[in-house]
Each structure stands twice: as structure tokens, then as C-alpha cells.
Design a protein around this nucleic acid. Sequence first.
DNA 1: GTCTATATTCCGATAGAC
DNA 2: GTCTATCGGAATATAGAC
Lengths: 190, 190
Amino acid sequence: MAPRNQDTKQEILRIGMDLIKRYGYNAFSYADISKVLEMKNAAVHYHFRGKEDLLAGILDQYLDDYVQLGKQLQVSRLTSLQKLDKFIERYSVLVDSNCICIIGSVASDYNTLPESVKARVTELIDLVLGMVEKTLQEGKKKGEFHFTESARTQALLIMTNLAAGVQLARISGKQDYVQIRKALLRQVKG
Amino acid sequence: MAPRNQDTKQEILRIGMDLIKRYGYNAFSYADISKVLEMKNAAVHYHFRGKEDLLAGILDQYLDDYVQLGKQLQVSRLTSLQKLDKFIERYSVLVDSNCICIIGSVASDYNTLPESVKARVTELIDLVLGMVEKTLQEGKKKGEFHFTESARTQALLIMTNLAAGVQLARISGKQDYVQIRKALLRQVKG
DNA sequence: GTCTATATTCCGATAGAC
DNA sequence: GTCTATCGGAATATAGAC
């Protein structure tokens, strides 16, 4: 049986990931996390020395997640469109849970982030953008997608539509996000 | 001569507008403002009772700004493309000053904003989106623009490209923003 | 090894000085 | 009318109890 320690550490990560997507890095505190776990806020410091270490842990987790998703897609027999949709689906989930994406969250707070984690933010963005670009490239080659921009630029367009789309949707409602989602798919389907 | 009071109030607004675009609502304090003006942080409370009143003032200022821009565009003899470009130019300025747009900033922090100002955020978004939509509609009618989505949806696509574009550009560099800007213009020019 | 009691710093805000 | 001295509370973090 896994020691309680690892469970607690994972729980803290999970709660932190939710809070950062819901409120942003500067707007949540260790107390928010400890309340959920019914402990003192100082207990969180045992598992993550300081808030910037927690942020690093959260970003590492997302990096792992997306590496995982990339591998899954690579060995899958999904069409390129299905792969793209699997990626987009993650954003729809965010809208339903009143959150924004991790990338938009840390990007908005970028100037206030500790220097020690900024490199991880860059890494995450490169990873995710690369994934979308690759899927687009592959789909174009197979004749599934038709677009005239470079795959990289098209990936940038999609990423920004989605990232800001979920930000807007929290305010003006899901309908706007749904329209954006449909439109960006039409763009690549040609 | 205007009383010092109004000058100070305007200065506070100006500094607040910069800080919210640079660091976000939750990441700046009255002390940050008072330091610049070489007074005690409590002095700011005289001009704006509390932080949420300051935020309301900032949003009102942006609402005024955009109403003003709307009127300017309406009476101008600019082509629709030039009007759109005038709007987009505001985002280029942000990239150069290491800021994100006010809409993206408050949208990212939306769940943490005081209830009293949320309506103003909605109002600002409606105003700006409406302006872009109107320009697109007009340009399409004149044959300057060619796009198949509804003007409203196309405006959503452009707004999200720009808002998240400046967020990304702060991290991955201006080049990404430049590519996005060029691509979204190609989209509407057809 | 895991968590609590406690220190320190900073934030937003009030009461009152000039 | 304009700003300062100061408060109450929350946030991050350390030292040490169990």
C-alpha cells in the first residue's frame, strides 16, 4: 500500500491544478488547499516547500499529461480530425467546469511568476503547440485538412481561439465557445 | 487650473490601468501605485474607496475609450480594413510594452472579481465585440472583406486570436503575434 | 516522516491629523 | 479636502512537536 504521504501529495497537486485554472496563481493560497484536506495550511509546506515549488509540480504534471496524450495519439488509429477533436474536447470540459486552460492561466500571470518556473511554461506551450501542429501537418498530407497557412501558424490560430475562447465563455456564456469551436473546425476542413 | 485632486485621481487611474494589464488585478496593490506617486498607500483610498472601486473606475475609463474609438471610426473616411487595422494596432502596442489586453486580463481573473464590477466586464466585451462585428459587416457589404462565418462569429475568432495572441507573445516572443496578425487579416480579406 | 504552533511580512482599510 | 499613522487580517514560510 502506498504511504499516505504520496496520496496527500497527489491530492494537493490535484486541488492546486483546479484552483489555478479556476482562480489563477496569485488568487489561491495554501489555506485554500489545506481547508479541503482538513489540515493546517502549514502542512502543505511539508509536501511542497513553497508556492513556487507547488507551481513547478503542477506544470510538471501537465507536461507529463500532454506527453502522455501525444503518445496515445501517435499509436492510435484515429483520423487526424479525431485527434484534433480529442484535443479540443479538453477545452469543452473546461468551459463546463467554469475554468480556463492552464496555459492561458499561467500566460496571463506570466509577469508575476517566479523565474524558476518560467522555463516550464515555455516548455508546456511548445509541447502543446507542437502537438497541434503535427496533427494538422499529418491531416493535410492525408487530405483530411485543407488550409493555406503554415501548420505552425494554423496551430497558433487554433490555440488562441481555444485559450481565449474559454476565457470569454466564462463571461458571455458557452454559446460563444461553441461557435468558435465549430468555426475553427470548418477552417481546417476547408 | 484643475485642482490637484483630479490630477492625482487621473494618475492613479493611469497607473492602475498599466498594472492590471502588466500583472493582473490580484497581483498589484495600492502600495504599488502609491510608491510611484511618492505617497502612502492609504492616500490612494481617498481617491478610490477600495480596490473594487478602482477597478470599476478603470473599466469605466476603458468603456469611455472604446466608445470614443467607435465614434471616431464612424465619422472617419477610413476603409473597413483600415478601421480593423486601427483596432488591431492597439494589440501590437501591448505586445511591445509587455502587457496583455484589459479584456484578457479581467477575463482570466473573472472568478475572483468583486460582483459589483462583473457587469462592467460584460459591457466592455459586448462593446468591443460589437465594434469589430460592425466593421466586419460593413466591409463585407462593401466587398472589402470576404468570409463565410457570420460577422459575429468572425469577430469572435479575431478577438480570441488577438487576446490570446498577446498572452502567448509575452512568453514565446513577438514573432508568433505577428504571424497571427497577418493570418487573421488574410482570413477576412478572403 | 508528517503535521501544528508560531513568526513575519504585506495587504486592504479606517480613523484621525493637518 | 488631502494625506498619514495605524489597525485587523490573511498570506507565505520556519521551527519544532509528535
